[in-house]
């Protein structure tokens, strides 16, 4: 867990915007940020189809997995958690294949999912090199701050 807030990221974006740097990479605790002024650096994602999706139906809340599940996973499986409350999406748009599949190799900058808050989408990155072993949330589900999203087996 880190103390980086959306506002801190905004400040970083502003600094980057007004600089003459072409790229910026930042890594603090669980957060990784990659900024580039080149339009080819990353393909942009069309979120418009998500925007009108109906809110998740109200169900009896599943106990949010806030604490590490002891004994459930080997020690070298690392948890990726939700940075804040929001709606979890596994793929860049409805119908598209998910960002990552079980067993897939990931790098620190691999996008794992989106967390949506009032139509604002934030990417969650793997933050480490390894293999996706568990996906713990269903697509379109409400996740809470610090909730377990993925378990990733660390490269040895």
């Amino acid at each position: 867990m880190n103390d980086i807030t959306p506002r801190d990221i905004e400040a970083l974006l502003e600094t980057f915007e007004s600089s003459n740097w072409s790229e910026m990479k930042l890594k603090i605790d669980g957060l990784e940020l990659f900024l580039s002024k080149s339009p080819d650096a990353r393909s942009s994602v069309d979120f418009s189809e998500y925007a009108d999706k109906a809110p998740a139906p109200v169900a009896a809340p599943a106990a949010p997995a806030l604490a590490p599940q002891h004994g459930a996973a080997p020690d070298h499986w690392i948890a990726v958690r939700a940075p804040n409350l929001g709606t979890f999406y596994r793929s860049p748009k409805p119908g598209a294949p998910p960002y990552v599949a079980l067993g897939q190799k990931v790098e620190p900058m691999t996008e794992l999912c989106l967390i949506e808050v009032m139509k604002l989408f934030t990417s969650v990155f793997a933050g480490l090199s390894g293999t996706v072993r568990r996906v713990l949330v269903e697509d379109g589900e409400l996740v809470e701050f610090n909730q377990l999203l993925f378990l990733i087996e660390l490269d040895s």
């Binding site: 103390d3 959306p6 809340p61 806030l66 409350l85 409400l142 701050f145």
Partner: peptide, 23 residues
Amino acid sequence: RVVTLGPAPARASYLDANLVVHA
């Protein structure tokens, strides 16, 4: 029911109107 908005500091939880309305 309880939902956790964000970490302890208010600006990342109680002071974020989007988070609250989304919740």
